[in-house]
């Protein structure tokens, strides 16, 4: 089987359809040459990221530092100090760039549902896929608790400025602080946009946490909150507009 270089690159970047991904996976399994090429491309990606991320360790120039201070002064960060928001394009895996404590919490919630009876046998399913599945299928206000004590609850749904469905959700595992998060639906998946640890009182976040997250939602939302009826229809349509 011949797999073009373009297709192999798109495979590495996760840009192919599920069917095409599967075809390339089969080719990699059967053809050592394609497997070697895919491995080299993936290794190159890591090298590029490592090489160009080197600038993160270099102190900002005086000029850029001044610009950063100007941005900090101009931004309303008081309420959102505890919130980690994600640029719209970033994958959930970007947790590595977050403050350690929150990153650890998010890393822990990525294990949500794993080893639970709900998804027994779904070993190949990525951790984010489990959350994504819950976001796709649960209506707001439905608390889902697994046998291992993890819990998930979609709290509300809204449309953002870009017209994407976004959902605020609560998630808690045994070994990590509970998180209030926001994920938005892109063409085919949910992408994490914001996450913050939450101080719980009887399973619900405190008012101050509410306010911080409200600020984030206020900045994102366009129009009203999606009603339960509209939510059910969106679930039926698999969140297609």
């Amino acid at each position: 089987m011949t797999i073009s270089d373009e297709k192999l690159n798109a495979f590495i970047d996760g840009e192919l359809s599920a069917l095409e991904m599967s075809i390339v996976r089969d080719a990699i399994a059967k053809d050592d040459h394609i497997a070697d090429r895919a491995e080299a491309l993936a290794a190159l990606n890591s090298q590029i990221t490592a090489s160009l991320s080197a600038i993160d360790a270099i102190p900002l120039s005086a000029g850029l530092s001044q610009v950063k201070s100007q941005l900090e002064t101009g931004a309303h960060t008081e309420a959102a100090d505890n919130v980690v928001s994600f640029p719209w394009w970033r994958q959930a895996q970007a947790a590595m760039t977050m403050p350690t404590a929150i990153a650890a919490s998010i890393a822990a919630i990525f294990g949500f549902f794993l080893n639970s009876e709900t998804h027994t046998g779904a070993g190949a399913m990525s951790d984010w896929s489990a959350i994504s599945q819950a976001l796709s299928n649960q209506t707001s206000g439905e608390l889902v608790t697994t046998n291992n004590g993890s819990s998930f609850e979609a709290r509300l749904t809204f449309l953002n400025q870009e017209g994407e469905y976004c959902r605020q959700f609560y998630i808690k595992t045994n070994n990590a602080p509970a998180l209030q998060s926001i994920a938005c639906r892109t063409e085919s998946d949910w992408q994490l946009r914001a996450a913050m640890p939450t101080v719980e009182q009887d399973g619900y976040q405190t008012a101050s946490n509410d306010r911080a997250l409200d600020d984030v939602i206020d900045a994102m939302i366009k129009g009203d909150i999606v009603s339960l009826e509209q939510e059910n229809k969106a679930i039926e349509r698999r969140w297609k507009q």
Binding site: Q70, L71, E72, T73, G74, A75, T77, A219
Partner: peptide, 11 residues
């Protein structure tokens, strides 16, 4: 303010 915050995040 939102622009400043977003730019800060993008920096």
């Amino acid at each position: 303010n939102k622009l400043h915050a977003e730019l800060l995040e993008l920096l």
